[in-house]
Design a protein around this nucleic acid. Structure first.
Lengths: 152, 152
DNA sequence: TCCAAGTCGTTGAATCTTCAATAAATACTA
DNA sequence: TAGTATTTATTGAAGATTCAACGACTTGGA
């Protein structure tokens, strides 16, 4: 902590204000759509989407939490709710007694179908319709680099 | 809602996965630093920063909520905590009886000083150190455009 | 002026998330 | 192999956020 970082200059500050505002507001926008269309939070929706693309639509809780961008504890609480509603089921992992596997049910798959079209439409409207192909690639590139900094 | 949006192609999907992951994780990273350095949530910190830059370090609750990227209700709850701790004070607006003004106190200013250096350092480490000048400008540009889509 | 409609902020209840503690199983090491 | 350290997941309590309802005030039009 000994070395002080220089403060942001005007251009950096303008960039930061816009970017941090985007980062704060985009999740709310996504959440609102999914909640309206399917009665799920965006995190719950993400959990179901990740499971949908997993092999056998099944995944370890730890891995699911990581891919859904949430903590294991958060997932555990949410999984209880999702299981209670019948969208997923949980069972012990046969090869590692510590692990729990979560699987998407048919009801969960159907729930996804309710939210997905509206979600794609919103993502297009808010993000992709605004970008050229090159800008889109660049956004992905920059995002990956920043992510690498965030993750250990 | 009649027209269906085409699903994302591979490049779009890869971009979206990275971007949405970033958007989900960056707030947590920022929150952790501010919480460690000053015992504030990132939203609380943002509220103080916005006030710091306001005229007379004073601002209407509504405007403050907007600029801090939160709902008015959220701000109202947080303002109670911040006021209790002595970092801000609230008083009736003299020109509009409906409004409340919030002002940063000396203690609040000092609290900011505890968190700011670490915050700049982290923002640099996670975002700006990773980008060239042109990429930085581009990120700001794209962020602004997406924000315009989100806001009404 | 008076009333209806709109704006501004707060509040309490319900919901969600985090944090720390715990339990159970596996991996490592001497 | 015994003992310790790690990994995995869940839980309950504390804290934070959202939502809907409310009260107080202002604005605009009849």
């Amino acid at each position: 902590m000994s070395d002080a970082a220089p403060w942001l200059d005007d251009e950096e500050m303008a960039t930061w204000l816009a970017f941090v505002s985007l980062v704060s507001r985009l999740p709310n926008a996504l959440d609102g759509q999914v909640r309206t269309d399917a009665g799920l939070s965006y995190f719950e929706y993400t959990v179901l989407v990740v499971l949908e693309h997993a092999e056998d639509r099944t995944m370890r809780m730890s891995d699911l939490a990581y891919l859904a961008n949430g903590s294991l504890s958060r997932l555990s609480h949410v999984a209880r709710r999702l299981e209670k509603e019948g969208f997923i089921r949980r069972f012990a992992c046969p090869t590692d007694g510590r692990s729990t596997l979560a699987a998407l049910t048919e009801d969960g798959l159907q729930k996804l179908a309710e939210a997905a079209p509206g979600h794609v439409k919103l993502v297009r409207a808010l993000v992709f319709d605004e970008l050229t192909r090159d800008e889109m690639r660049q956004l992905g590139e920059l995002s990956k680099r920043m992510l690498d900094r965030i993750n250990p």
